[in-house]
Design a protein around this nucleic acid. Structure first.
Lengths: 339, 339
DNA sequence: CCCGTTTTCGGAAGCGCTTCCGAACATGAT
DNA sequence: ATCATGTTCGGAAGCGCTTCCGAAAACGGG
């Protein structure tokens, strides 16, 4: 199965009748090689299907030409889409993309303690994972450029959306429809200790409510682990309370769908009995007619990659970039019923 | 931002008062180093935060310890989930994971012609992408182990599910409910030339129908590009036909959702007027109560990774493995209405 | 036709590690 | 004590490239 032996630069040089040095220069199209020679060497290299040994050249030059992507959960649409964008532009720029999932506490800890990408990449992009102070210090040990894609991290140069603003837009949409008893189902990371519920996404909700002069019923804002069925359960809790909301705002479309399932099973109609709004504009949201606030996910990845490349080139690009979000009205929301 | 200079083995050796050779052996816990010495070297290495230069060791040993993942579309749940499984076990086995997306024709071509992973990895896993004969030959040039995860490719050692069987199960489920006018919406790759519609997934449909002695109405089996809205449009076409089906089988859950949207907009109820069944058991299928046939996606990735590792270790594992699928009955299907 | 320049190219020294080989030393049996 | 065996460790030769430096060759102006 294996070819007997990989062809090396030496083979090319010999075959082309030049020295190793010249062969190398010719292939890297460095200055100082006669056009004819370069041509000949290139020709031989092509014929021999020569490919430089990456470790050898990296060792010799010090350049690495690869970047690490640190991402929590590839199986969630949001991350897959983001990584898709990142990978595309990085690959086209000639970089290799190393993938590191840090979804569960174990692998997260392992990643930051062992730094498996150390000495392997010349940059890392953290995808929507807020790093702790300690993790930040560990990462620093790698001594490479770091950027953040998605998430609300001011620690590194980043491109993301304003999460709070997105939630605010969703809230205002509901408010505009006359809703007052609005429930919100927030996603929290079960592995993280403190959960500053009034910060991050949820902040936008409180702000919008305050500005509209609508009191928020604390019983209606619940936190749960991320996930559709978790949201469905949270919705059950919401339905067991003394006041049932006329609208619910979920922190992601998946969670909105979970809430909708519970409502459906409870015999409540969406949107007639209760309106539901999600966040993200998951591709399936369109198919289930879910009102949501759209964020450009792939684009965050694409732009983060460009940001990184600019940094690597030594340019001085914008270090902070927030992409706009906007509500996409479909038919899971409608005016509040009276009462 | 960068630390002045990375600490090398030489630093560790000097600090520990041993030679380079001994330091190397001590750290690789190779045989022939006194326990005390090993301990001391390890201690120094830890204190200095020493990490071996991967290019140097790879160059010296020839080992690469990394594998390439070739995948079409990270943004689709199926692939994200699969890659998630692959990455996890490969990472835990100490391998680096290089990602290469080959979704569009351009990057696909580039990948197979330039073989960017050549000389960088000691294995590649192709994720649900059927390679052409030409691509197979190109890949062979890499001279490394190859396995397939998902897809119906007998070219390489693989682990996947039996797609035809999955469709057959879905069909039989519908048949059992009394459906006769069954539509099927198949996904085809718009970039590939020939579309053998009676092969692959669709074959299972024809077989099941034949066995049940139910004639298939060719007008009811339509092909479209993959995607929810594509399926929605296909469904529109189906509703424009002379006979409208009592059930529709979509080749993925996303597409089933697309079909459902069209039905809903057409004023038809699911499942009372028409039953819908998908394939995959996408996490959201559960939330929208979609009947589907489940395939273990992440598990295919996990097992493919294990298969690969076994191959790399020189063992002789099962070269072909099909994981079971089974229908998950939810409420998008019901008995056929008369007439 | 000569001499200072510019081009083109080869020699050789690394890049940071692994590992073969043999020297030095410790060990146990005789 | 002595010698055969083992054990521990250092020297040094690569791994396959890049690149500095200087030599040789080609060139151009006077």
């Amino acid at each position: 199965m294996n070819s007997s032996k990989a062809v090396g630069l030496a083979d090319v040089a010999r075959e082309a009748g030049v020295s190793l040095a010249t062969a190398s220069r010719a292939l890297n199209s460095a200055y100082g090689v006669a056009a004819g020679t370069r041509e000949r060497v290139a020709e031989v290299a092509r014929r021999l299907e020569y490919v430089a040994s990456p470790e050898a050249s990296r060792l010799a030059t010090g350049a690495r030409r690869s970047v690490a992507l640190v991402v929590p959960h590839l199986e969630r649409w949001y991350f897959g889409e983001m990584v898709g964008g990142l990978e595309e532009v990085l690959r086209e720029a000639g970089h290799d993309v190393l993938l590191y999932q840090v979804g569960d506490p174990g692998s997260r800890h392992a990643f930051f303690e062992h730094l498996p990408a150390r000495r392997k990449v010349d940059a890392v992009v953290v995808v929507a994972v807020p790093v702790t102070e300690h993790e930040r210090r560990r990462l620093e040990l790698m001594g490479v450029t770091i950027v953040a894609a998605g998430g609300q991290d001011a620690t590194y140069p980043f491109v993301s959306v304003d999460d709070a603003a997105a939630v605010r837009q969703a809230t205002e949409h509901l408010l505009r429809l006359g809703h007052r008893r609005i429930a919100v189902i927030t996603a929290v990371d079960p592995d993280r200790a403190e959960q500053p519920v009034r910060r991050g996404r949820t902040r936008g909700f409180y702000e919008a409510m305050a500005e509209a002069g609508v009191p928020v019923d604390e019983e209606l804002v619940v936190a749960t682990a991320w996930g559709g069925v978790q949201a469905a359960e949270a919705m059950e809790g919401l339905l067991s309370g003394r006041t049932i909301p006329t609208a619910v705002l979920a922190h992601s479309d998946e969670m909105a769908l979970g809430a909708m399932r519970t409502l459906r099973r409870a015999g409540l109609r969406v949107p007639e009995d209760v309106s539901v709004v999600g966040i993200d504009d998951h591709p399936l949201a369109e198919l289930v007619d879910l009102t949501t606030v759209r964020q450009p996910v792939r684009d965050q990845g694409v732009q983060a990659a460009h940001l990184l490349l600019a940094l690597l080139r030594g340019e001085e690009p914008d270090l902070a970039r927030k992409l706009p979000t906007r509500v996409v009205v479909r038919s899971s929301t409608t005016t509040a019923r009276q009462g």
